[in-house]
């Protein structure tokens, strides 16, 4: 099953990348589609991490005791200010340990 999953994802991913690049030259993309696609990365990538920070065992947890939420906030601040991936991940992990020790 693992190999099947890997090959299926690989095929799907390649098709996603090739999709528009393989369209014949005369095809014009509708303006609305281009506008909608613009928002896909921000929407999908954010939708992956927000529940990981805000939910604890499937229940909404917006209290200071939720150290993942606090550490995530630190990581967001670092990502926003410095735009460095490694710094973001490192700061978030360090913050998680600090908040875990505090609460």
């Amino acid at each position: 099953m693992l190999w099947g999953v890997i090959l299926a994802i690989a095929a799907a991913t390649f098709c996603q990348r090739a999709s528009f690049l393989l369209l014949p030259e005369r095809v014009r993309l509708p303006e609305f589609l281009k506008r909608a696609l613009r928002y896909v990365p921000a929407a999908v990538l954010t939708a992956i991490w927000v529940p990981e920070l805000m939910l604890r065992k499937g229940v909404l947890s917006l209290v200071p005791g939720n150290e993942r939420l606090l550490a995530g906030a630190v990581a967001i601040a670092v990502a926003w200010r410095f735009r460095v991936a490694f710094g973001t991940i490192l700061a978030g992990l360090l913050a998680l340990h600090v908040f875990d020790w505090m609460f």
Binding site: Y39, A42, V44, V50, G72
Partner: peptide, 30 residues
Amino acid sequence: TPLAFIAMSVPFLRDKPMVAAAASAGATAV
């Protein structure tokens, strides 16, 4: 893993519509 996704998504938030898209997607996911 979630931190890597934070690092990937935040640089896309360059203007207000992008922030609206991300906030709405995050809230919907929760």
